[in-house]
Simulated assay, not measured.
Amino acid sequence: MSGREKLHDLRQQAHNAGIEGNSKMTEGQLRQALNKVGKGMDPMAAKQQAKR
Rank of each mutant, 00 (worst) to 15 (best):
Q29Y: 08
A33S: 05
M1Q: 06
K36V: 02
T26H: 03
G18V: 11
R31Q: 12
Q13M: 08
G40T: 06
K6S: 09
K24R: 14
A17Y: 05
K6L: 13
V37Y: 03
M41Q: 12
T26D: 01
S2P: 13
K6I: 11
Q13E: 08
M25N: 04
G38M: 05
G21D: 15
G38R: 01
L7N: 12
S23E: 11
M25K: 05
G40Y: 05
G21S: 10
M41Y: 07
R31P: 04
P43Q: 07
N35F: 13
H8W: 14
R4W: 10
S23G: 15
N16E: 14
V37A: 01
M25E: 02
D42G: 00
A33V: 06
Q32N: 11
A33E: 01
A46G: 10
A14D: 01
G40P: 06
D42V: 05
Q29N: 05
A17L: 08
E5G: 00
K36L: 12
Q12P: 02
K51I: 14
N35M: 09
H15G: 03
A50F: 06
P43V: 08
H15W: 07
A46C: 09
R11W: 04
S2M: 13
S23P: 03
L34D: 00
G38L: 07
Q49P: 01
D9H: 11
Q32K: 15
I19A: 00
I19W: 00
R11H: 09
A14F: 02
H15P: 00
K51S: 14
H15Y: 12
A33N: 04
E5N: 12
H15A: 07
A46L: 14
S2D: 13
V37G: 02
K6P: 02
N35V: 05
D42F: 04
L30N: 05
A46S: 10
M41L: 09
S23K: 13
R11G: 01
N35I: 00
M44R: 07
L34S: 01
K36M: 14
L10E: 08
K47M: 04
M1N: 05
L30G: 03
Q32F: 09
H8L: 15
G21K: 11
K24Q: 13
G38W: 08
M44F: 06
R52C: 05
L10P: 02
G3N: 15
L10T: 03
H15N: 06
K36R: 08
Q32T: 12
Q13I: 05
N16K: 13
I19S: 00
G28H: 08
K47Q: 01
R52P: 05
Q13L: 10
A46Y: 13
E20T: 10
R52V: 10
A46I: 15
S2C: 11
A50S: 13
M44Q: 15
A14G: 13
L34T: 01
M44N: 07
G40R: 02
E27Y: 07
L34M: 00
Q13C: 00
E5I: 10
A45H: 08
R4E: 14
I19N: 02
S2R: 11
D9R: 09
L7F: 12
K51T: 15
G18L: 11
R11M: 07
K51N: 07
Q32R: 14
D42L: 06
M1I: 09
R11L: 08
Q29I: 09
N22M: 03
A17G: 00
Q13P: 00
T26N: 01
A46H: 08
Q48L: 14
M44L: 04
H8K: 14
K47W: 03
A33P: 05
V37I: 03
Q48S: 15
